[in-house]
Amino acid sequence: MDRNVTDRWIALYVENEVGVLAMVSGLFSGKSYNLRSLTVGTTERDDISRMTIEVESDDITFEQIKKQLNTMVEVIKVIDLTEVKMHMNEIMYAVIPGIDTEKKSEVFRIAQVFHLKPIDIDEHTVMLLSSLAPDKNDDLVKLLKRTFHRIEITRGGAVAVESLNNK
């Protein structure tokens, strides 16, 4: 059987209550689902939060994950984003320390190409803000690692929302 293990995305509407995040993440660890990323924030309603979840799984496990999430009383709605057109971005900070002027220009060149924002700087360090899609951030991290001696990366996890023109 083709296991078809791949990255998949879920948007989850949940009750904005104490302990719900722990219950959702606990489901993933308890049942050995491979959780790649989970972000959460409130919606236009104070009592409802929305999560963006990335999992790596095969087809059968993914169906089971959606069903298990649906059985949770605190889960209001499960949306499978895998086959849906969506906007997806991730906040990522990249700090490049210990660089000379020449390397600094290199940082700015990369920032320009990737549409990154230099948001902080001192004599030997530059901090960049990226809000690219997570796979683009992956590429960026690889490039920075290759180019510079040392980097510090802080990633926020992906937030996804369905496109307006989904049929």
């Binding site: 209550e17 104490v18 302990g19 722990a22 219950m23 606990g26 489901l27 308890g30 009383v73």
Partner: peptide, 27 residues
């Protein structure tokens, strides 16, 4: 106890407001 049992209950919750008590027991 709610955290400890959440993988073995259908639903578990701590009552945090007196006004929710009736609704939660009904649930």
């Amino acid at each position: 106890i709610v955290g400890m049992t959440h993988s073995v209950v259908k639903y578990g919750v701590t009552v945090r407001n007196r006004d929710d008590l009736g609704r939660i027991i009904k649930m």
